[in-house]
Amino acid sequence: MMEILTQPLMYGFMQRGMLASVMVGILCAVVGCYVVLRGMAYLGDAMSHAILPGVAVAYILKGEILIGALIAAIVVALGIGFFTRRGTIKEDTAIGILFAATLSLGVALISTIKTYALDLTHILFGNVLGVSDTDLILIAVLGAVVLLTIVLLYKELLVVSFDPVLAATLRLPVERLKNVLLILIALAVVVSMQTVGVGLVAAMLVTPAATAYLLTRRLPAMMVVSAALGALASIIGLYLSFYLNIVSGAAVVLTATIFFFIAYLFAPQRGLIWNVLGRRNAVASAPAE
């Protein structure tokens, strides 16, 4: 039994892959709580494609690909913030427009660079099994910065997400805080994508947080449970990937999805089964007026 658990960890690439996906799992899961609560589920997907022009420009200028991706992601984040200022355009609409625009810009830029070596999509969308020590340090540092910011700005981000009107009357810089949040999401997406692949990021940003939402009733608990689910899905997913010989990113995402289905069925209060069977009890224990 122990051997089943230890055998994959005999390999350096599995250890690094495990660490990378656990860190990314935690990072995305925590940031994802805001993504889920603010109803921006496809922001992660959008952002991971939106960085394409940044990558292309970085390639043309022979700069660091990651820096290009980061700049592009932040520009897109601020762009979403700009267009949704004072509710001119809805957030999902702004995301949709910028997503399509940047993706197209990226494809257009890449089509001007005609060379075999420019297999950008593969450079861009990493594989968790190809994670290097440098990558690990990068994820750790940027991830810690993002998580620390979320902890330090906890109450400001909470009030801006829950009730921006109140935030404004409290004289909090609402637009700037919204931008900070978007930038945090952008950082999480870029850091994660470089190492674990685009499909994994989009799913890890939404699925564990959505699962945690079903299981908890307060934001701090939601974040912790989401992080735990993200980490657990990463670990179980990588073991499954090792033993069932399937692609790692997909295995992690599917594991997280199974967690979600279980929670959707069995969660207290919000789960399907609880709702079907427990309605009568619920009425009995409802808060008194």
Partner: peptide, 21 residues
């Protein structure tokens, strides 16, 4: 506790040792 667990858990996982097969 949430904050502490998050940040420490994250950093610990970043520092785990690595061994070649």
């Amino acid at each position: 506790w949430g904050a502490v667990v998050l940040v420490i858990g994250f950093l610990v996982s970043a520092c785990a040792p690595s061994e070649e097969p």
